[in-house]
Structures are given as structure tokens and as C-alpha cells.
């Protein structure tokens, strides 16, 4: 039962994932696997590295992040991501949109016809 609920959650969450990842990156230089761990720890346990990776590729393509490749103590060199100005603007817009959507949805729930 719980699994089904979580799966539905993932579907719902998918559209928000890009904004969430921008938010995580805004907290300072980070890399893909670390972002996944953060989301998993937050409770989004179904988010896998591959999903995060596809979003990072898109952020890169849309030039919302700056990237630096650095050697890692373990395995191959890693790509580190930081937000650039365009990314910060995008993130701000995300939060504005989110504020609108969530307030409207709450309003819907709380106002009885």
C-alpha cells in the first residue's frame, strides 16, 4: 500500500524536480549523486540517480548552471554544478510559480462552495 502511494508521489513530484534540484544547487557547488542522496533523505526515496542526471543534462543545455570537472577520491572525475545568473532567475521563478500553485490548491481545499 505504501509503495503505491510513493509511486503516485513520484509522478506528481516529477514536474517539480527541476526546481528542487536548482534549489539544492543554489546551496553551493554539488554533484549528481549527492543531489540524489539529498532528495532521498528528504523522503523522495524513489528518485534515482538517472533521473537526476537527465535533469542536470537539461540544466546544462539550457545554460542555467556552470560546470567544473574535478577529480574525485573515488571513481572517475566528477562534474560539479553551480548556479549562474540565469539559473538563479529560473529558481526564483520556480518559487513564484510554486507559491501561486500551492496557495491556490490550498484555497481550493479550504473554501467550501
Amino acid at each position: 500500500m505504501e509503495v503505491i502511494i510513493l509511486e503516485n508521489l513520484t509522478e506528481m513530484f516529477k514536474g517539480l524536480l527541476e526546481g528542487c534540484i536548482l534549489e539544492i544547487i543554489s546551496g553551493g557547488e554539488t554533484y549528481g549523486y549527492k543531489i540524489t542522496r539529498r532528495l532521498n533523505a528528504l523522503g523522495f526515496t524513489d528518485v534515482v540517480d538517472g533521473t537526476v542526471y537527465t535533469i542536470l543534462v537539461r540544466l546544462e543545455k539550457n545554460k542555467l548552471v556552470d560546470i567544473e570537472k574535478k577529480p574525485s577520491d573515488m571513481g572517475p572525475p566528477r562534474k560539479f554544478y553551480v548556479l549562474n545568473d540565469a539559473g538563479r532567475r529560473e529558481l526564483q521563478q520556480f518559487w513564484e510559480k510554486w507559491a501561486f500553485v500551492s496557495s491556490k490548491i490550498n484555497e481550493l481545499k479550504e473554501t467550501k462552495p
Partner: peptide, 19 residues
């Protein structure tokens, strides 16, 4: 391949990485 190599280094199974 970058993604996969890092998954290997972390000891993850491939489907854990891709879903």
C-alpha cells in the same frame, strides 16, 4: 558512461542508477 562509472564506484546496481 560517466554516470555509470560513478555508480560502479559507489557499488550500486545498474538499475538502481537508471531506475
Amino acid at each position: 558512461v560517466d554516470l555509470f562509472e560513478e555508480g560502479v564506484a559507489l557499488g550500486k546496481g545498474v538499475l538502481e542508477v537508471t531506475g
